[in-house]
Design a protein around this nucleic acid. Structure first.
Length: 801
DNA sequence: AGCCTCCTAATTTTT
DNA sequence: TTAGGAGGCT
């Protein structure tokens, strides 16, 4: 059993030092101690209204960049400072850990002290875990249940699908997990799935859902959706428990309310039903997660749910220029059923949103690269910007590639946000499975995962034997394995390997309970003794060193926790991996990932119908889908502080086919008075033609400026450095750009050459295609790089083979 | 167990 | 086009 004796979380804790000591009688009369509230001074009237309306339902409609977090955190500070609530009586929910962390920090700043005593500030999921551990038995779980990640979930579902004799090719597990997730998002238990939905997944969806939930119970596990669903179920069935929490959570605050799904909505509504002290903050115009169950309806319906609710609109924007706001407003105006907000700003001046069409996606990437460098130098009419201040926001991650390729070519540092999370990586999951088994030998999923990782000669047959023995004896797989070893059921190499594994598992478990070593040492030992570390050290693929690195990081992360259990409990919910790198970099990410962020300069490429708005979204969800796409456009534009650049291409490579594209309908929704149409520099004789419907007249001055800039750009300089200055003499500013490319052909390489690249380090030339080289880099793996950015390793001091 | 070939699908993603 | 998974073959 793990440590969840947090009953103290509900004990009245000593109010913060600065909190008032007002006798209850006076409090009941509405008298509170007059106390300074300097934090209120920095608020605008709307924010202040939202902050001071402490009691009763409040809907804070906070547009992008209107100081939402400030209002929310100040409200919490105010609740504490006025003595309306103790820190542990405030339930404040966010979606991400990042948001929760930021909120904690900011409240602490406002109050001038750390907020240790705010145990109920966190994500929906983390709060639900805490609650569910206290009441697990009510839904057939033990309080030390494990939380499955998507991978475990899919493996489990796959077993069920195979067992049900369903063709898993036509009906893959991932599809089923999507269906079940959707049901859980709607707070439907298997019994509650309406008949209309029951036909899902070849007519066997509900049945499999049933089986899945049963299986989870046996495994003493639940998935992410269950955390919410179980709590809603418990609240609905056990009035006494609900009452208890309704009393304890005297004030409820919700961030990003437009992103809540039905389960979260019900959860909140149940908890708020008594006192109705609920403050929801959100922006219907930024609802972009409908596809994963978010219901914009929740925010649109707030006033109906909570009659007499106070609605406060935060519309003064502190982030963007008037033109950017105007452009965003023009686009979002196309949506119906909005609560209606219009952002405004005090700020004067500012550039219009820049719009440009390109010949194709590569040209677009090339142009963006040059713009980034120009802005870095400050030759776009602005003070020089750091690369950290610039971001490229794309609709779909495959768009990133063109930019990455281009930036690698010109040596422009970039970072990609998104991609696989740290704890989703193969090696991290494997390591975690070992840790899970050390904690509990009942964890069958963990056992299945690592039984033959590293290879122990245990194939499908061996695993089936173990499973059979476990089932026959009604025990866990680890026990089944033990029996298999004792009875000598598995012969040869596999038998030996399994015996070692079982012995190891026992030893680790014993050592963990005896706490002879620290948990960090134990973890290291587990990874070494199991042969897992060796497994990657022997692996010669280019990824192996990185994986070992990650394992080290994992062990390091352990240091921050009391013990292995504590770590495992948290890691399933937390652990965003932001390995901070000090180097200046442009950020590339999806529009979804950009929500909540802001950058002085933002690029929004790929505004083409079908890509953005996404065809699929429109096909699947029709007008609803299109409106969500439009909100995405709105989110994108409002990320920009001073420079917002929208672009599209006339041709794009889609699944290896060149397709001609039409500009996004959102382009035409941009109000003309807020847009500056740029003409692409004619360097490639490109330029966007009649198809765009745009006037195509551009400024000659701009064009010339671009040309001249190209030779002062950091990329150009870097390139010269990379080529050891060889090209410097021949290429001077003002010469035709084509020459640069010709120059590249001058450098010659042969297969097998040891070479050096500024970003990728040392490598070996594997092949040559025109001016591009196939290089197997020692650290970075295989890449295609234009030869002019490569120098022979001997010149750089590396010892050739 | 490991390698090879064929097939299919291809947005967005937190917890 | 390409990546990843499944199934088959050695």
């Amino acid at each position: 059993m793990s440590d969840f004796d947090d009953d103290d979380l509900f004990e009245p804790i000593e109010p913060a030092q600065s909190a008032p000591k007002v006798p209850l009688s006076q409090r009941a009369m509405g008298i509170s101690a007059p106390r300074p509230a300097p934090y209120l001074d920095g608020l605008n009237p709307a924010q202040r209204e939202a902050v001071e309306a402490l009691d009763g339902p409040v809907l804070m409609l906070a547009g992008a960049g209107t100081g939402k977090t400030k209002a929310l955190t100040t409200r919490i500070a105010h609740l504490l400072n006025t003595g309306q609530a103790r820190p542990n009586e405030i339930l404040s929910v966010t979606f991400t850990n990042k948001a929760a962390r930021e909120m904690k920090n900011r409240v602490a700043n406002l109050l001038g002290q750390t907020v240790e005593g705010m145990p109920w500030m966190g994500t929906f999921h983390s709060i639900c875990v805490k609650l569910l551990r206290r009441h697990a038995e009510l839904v057939g779980l033990k309080s030390n249940f494990t939380i499955l990640d998507t991978d475990d979930q899919n493996r489990l579902l796959k077993q069920l699908i195979v067992a049900a004799n369903i063709d898993e090719k036509r009906w893959p597990a991932r599809l089923l997990s999507g269906v079940i997730d959707n049901w859980k998002n709607r707070a439907w238990t298997p019994a509650q799935v309406p008949t209309g939905d029951a036909s899902a997944f070849n007519g066997q969806g509900v049945d499999l859902y049933h089986q899945y939930q049963e299986r989870l119970k046996t495994l003493n596990a639940c998935d992410f959706g269950d955390l919410l669903l179980h709590m809603v179920t418990i609240f609905q069935r056990h009035d006494d428990i609900l009452k208890q929490y309704q009393t304890w959570f005297r004030y409820i605050l919700v961030d990003e309310y437009q992103d809540t799904n039905v389960a979260q909505y019900l959860w909140l509504r149940l908890l708020a039903a008594g006192h109705k002290n609920i403050c929801c903050v959100g922006d219907d115009d930024q609802s972009i997660y409908g596809w994963r169950g978010a219901e914009v309806g929740n925010i649109l319906r707030f006033e109906a749910d909570f009659p007499g609710a106070k609605v406060v609109k935060l519309e003064q924007n502190y982030r963007s220029t008037a033109h950017i706001l105007g452009a965003a407003a023009g686009v979002i105006r196309g949506n119906e059923g909005r609560l209606g907000k219009e952002l405004w700003t005090d700020a004067e001046g500012g550039d219009k949103v820049r719009l440009i069409g390109h010949w194709d996606g590569n040209e677009e990437a090339r142009w963006v690269g040059e713009e980034l460098e120009a802005m870095q130098r400050g030759t776009r009419g602005n003070a020089p910007l750091s690369l950290d201040d610039m971001a490229i926001l794309v609709r779909a991650s495959h768009q990133m590639r063109a930019f990455e390729d281009r930036f690698l070519t010109i040596g422009l540092p970039y970072r990609v946000i998104g991609g696989p999370r740290f704890y989703e990586r193969l090696e991290i999951r494997d390591a975690m499975a070992y840790f899970r088994l050390a904690v509990s030998q009942d964890d069958d999923l963990a056992f299945e995962r690592i039984v033959n990782t590293p290879r122990r000669g245990l194939g499908d047959k061996a695993v089936q034997t173990i499973q059979r023995l476990a089932r026959q004896n009604g025990v866990s797989l680890v026990e089944g394995a033990r029996i298999a070893v004792e009875q000598g059921e598995i012969k040869g190499k596999g038998g030996k390997g399994l015996a070692d594994l079982v012995i190891g598992l026992d030893r680790w478990h014993k050592q963990m309970t005896e706490e002879a070593d620290t948990h960090v040492e134990l973890a290291e030992m587990i990874l070494d003794d199991s042969g897992y570390t060796a497994h990657w050290m022997n692996d010669k693929t280019p990824e192996a060193p990185g994986r070992l690195e990650n394992l080290k990081e994992l062990v390091k992360a352990l240091e921050g926790f009391e013990n292995l259990q504590g770590f495992l409990e948290h890691v399933s919910l937390i652990m965003d991996n932001e390995s901070e790198n000090s180097e200046e970099k442009v950020t590339i990410m999806t529009l979804h990932a950009a929500k909540g962020l802001e950058y002085p300069a933002v690029f929004l490429p790929g505004w083409e119908d079908g890509l953005f708005p996404s065809q699929r979204s429109m096909d699947e969800s029709g007008l609803k889908g299109l409106e969500e796409e439009r909100r995405l456009a709105y989110v994108g534009i409002t990320r920009a502080e001073t420079i917002c650049t929208i672009s599209f291409a006339a041709n794009r490579l889609v699944y290896g086919q060149w397709q001609s594209q039409l500009p996004s309908r959102f382009v035409d929704e941009l109000p003309e008075e807020h847009v500056d149409v740029l003409t692409p520099p004619g360097l490639y004789g490109g330029g966007y033609g009649a198809a765009s419907g745009m006037s195509g007249v551009g400024s000659k001055i701009e064009e010339q400026a671009l040309r001249a800039d190209a030779y002062n750009s950091p990329g150009w300089k870097r390139m010269q450095e990379n080529t050891g200055g060889k090209l410097r003499a021949k290429s001077s500013p003002g010469e035709a750009r084509g020459l640069v490319i010709d120059m590249a052909a001058v450098s010659s390489f042969t297969q097998g050459n040891r070479v050096f690249h500024q970003k990728f380090g040392y490598g070996t030339v594997m092949g040559i295609e025109g001016d591009k080289l196939d290089i197997e880099f020692d650290k970075a793996g295989a890449k295609k790089v234009i030869s002019k950015f490569i120098i022979l390793a001997s010149e750089a001091g590396d010892v050739p083979f």
